[in-house]
């Protein structure tokens, strides 16, 4: 390819900026989107409102409390120990997400780069495992964990969460690895890189969006999980936040709404922060993993 230098010509006159045209369809779309956002955000607004309402205002319909109070947060933190259970949940979720990625990444690489009837069978089996209802596996799982002394321990719960998230994470990651051209690895090999270097220096940087997306999936999955945590953890000091918050619910649709809202708000906070930081990578990761190039 040759490049020729162009003589500098007269400056190109800037196009006059056109006044935005009145576009009813666009405005209608904007209004509809705004309505949709309000619809989506309303439960969160109501949650915030209830968290600050004193007991006497629990059943009022006003969105802004007349006498806002921090008492519900105090009750959630001091009486219920929400911070302790949030710390437990964070520990369990974070470690299980890391372990899931550590196991799924090399497995996904093999499944994507070494196609064989066995590997195809493995992929189908992964999909099949997603159809098992929790209630079907909880008892045998409990018995296995009891045999290894893992009932009523965070380690036991981490093992369960890793196993629970692994199939989906593996499926997503192998889709993403398949999307990375083989030629990149071949070029690295020609430049003298061994397989470990190829994976760590070429493949892993490209995989980061997918790792973030699937790691977040595994984290949120564990953060929101209720049933395993309920059945496996017996000691109050080990309990996770979802199980802890459920204690605020009573019979006939009754609940201690104020502390429940305050606790739920606190429980939502870490995931909101994580998503805030990772949102862009998450979206690109999900899109990339979903389509085989």
């Amino acid at each position: 390819m040759t490049h020729t230098l162009q003589p500098p010509g007269p400056p190109v006159p800037r196009r006059p900026r056109r006044r935005p045209r009145f576009q009813p369809a666009r405005m209608l779309m904007g209004a509809l989107l705004l309505l949709f956002v309000v619809f989506l955000a309303f439960p969160l607004l109501w949650l915030i409102s209830t968290a600050f309402k004193p007991l006497a205002e629990t059943f009022t319909t006003a969105l802004i409390p007349q006498n806002p109070t921090w008492a519900n947060f105090g009750e959630a933190i001091v009486d219920l120990g929400v911070l302790q259970s949030a710390a437990n949940t964070f520990k369990v979720s974070f470690i299980s997400a890391l372990l899931t990625l550590a196991i799924a990444t090399p497995a996904a690489y093999v499944l994507a780069r070494r196609p064989s009837p066995v590997n195809r069978g493995v992929l189908i089996w992964i999909l099949v495992t997603q159809t098992f209802p929790v209630i079907l596996i909880i008892v045998p799982l409990f018995l296995i964990l009891a045999r290894f002394g893992l009932v009523n321990t965070h380690l036991g719960l981490i093992v369960v969460y890793v196993v629970w998230s692994l199939p989906f994470v593996l499926w997503m990651l192998q889709g993403y690895v398949s999307g990375i051209p083989n030629e990149l690895e071949e070029a690295a090999a020609m430049d003298g890189a061994n397989q470990v270097q190829t994976i760590t220096r070429i493949l892993l940087p490209l995989l980061i969006p997918a790792l973030v997306a699937t790691g977040l999936y595994a984290f949120v999955n564990a953060w929101n999980e209720f049933f395993f945590a309920l059945v496996l953890l017996k000691s109050p000091e080990l309990t996770t936040i979802q199980v802890n918050l459920s204690k605020l619910r009573g019979i006939e649709g009754l609940a201690r709404w104020g502390p429940l809202a305050a606790g739920s708000l606190l429980a939502t906070f870490p995931t909101l922060v994580l998503f805030g930081f990772m949102q862009r990578r998450l979206v690109s990761g999900l899109l990339s993993g979903g389509v085989k190039a």
Binding site: F142, S235, K247, G250
Partner: peptide, 15 residues
């Protein structure tokens, strides 16, 4: 003492 919620006690006890 261990507190369990009314919503989940049936599943908890069954398992």
């Amino acid at each position: 003492y261990q507190q369990v919620s009314w919503d989940s006690v049936q599943d908890y006890l069954t398992t």
